[in-house]
């Protein structure tokens, strides 16, 4: 899963993605997932265009976009930081890690500040290396506050 490389998906790219899935309406979730992987979110214009090209109602497309956590309707930051909130990670201190992250970044979940979007995630399947964090699609395990800070430094250094 690539790091977000576009601010917004233009009409032409959207059409190309739809064509890649042969404009099959049952591929809507896959089409949206492809869009979100490329640019991080789904705009109202894209919803309109997908409805047209897939011969669905705007309400259908809107409903699917609203239903799934992955489909943001606001532009996220350049970097997406997800902290696992599920039980196995809680057993290893993810609640404290989450507090640390919120305090360090001075933000809450679903906020975007300084090019970073902070989100909760419910299980990354890395439960024997808890707590787990996903940054730009890569999972990191055994993350304590010090390692979290180091990962953030890498992120900022790499900008």
């Amino acid at each position: 899963m690539a790091i977000i490389d576009q601010e917004i998906i233009d009409q032409k790219t959207t059409s190309e993605i739809v064509a890649q899935y042969n404009a099959r309406p049952e591929m809507l979730v896959q089409i949206l997932q492809t869009i979100v992987m490329r640019c991080g979110w789904v705009s109202q214009n894209t919803i309109r265009q997908l409805a047209d090209e897939l011969n669905l109602s705007r309400a259908d497309v809107h409903g699917v976009v609203e239903y799934y956590h992955d489909f943001r309707t606001e532009k996220p930051g350049k970097h997406i930081v997800k902290i696992c909130q599920a039980e196995a990670c809680q057993a290893m201190g993810s609640r404290a890690l989450t507090e640390h992250a919120k305090k360090t970044l001075a933000m809450s979940f679903h906020d975007t500040e300084n090019d970073i979007t902070l989100e909760p995630v419910y299980c990354l399947g890395n439960c024997a290396c808890s707590p787990a964090v996903m940054i730009n699609g890569k999972t990191h395990g055994r993350v304590d506050p010090a390692r979290f800070n180091a990962l953030l430094d890498d992120l900022r250094g790499g900008q």
């Binding site: 809507l28 699917v64 419910y122």
Partner: peptide, 23 residues
């Protein structure tokens, strides 16, 4: 197919709906 972050899609009928491109 890829899911999109919904836990309940692990329930078999919800998964089928999602495979059909729906909520």
């Amino acid at each position: 197919h890829l899911g999109a972050g919904s836990y309940v899609c692990g329930e078999e009928t919800a998964m089928l709906e999602s495979l059909e491109g729906k909520k």
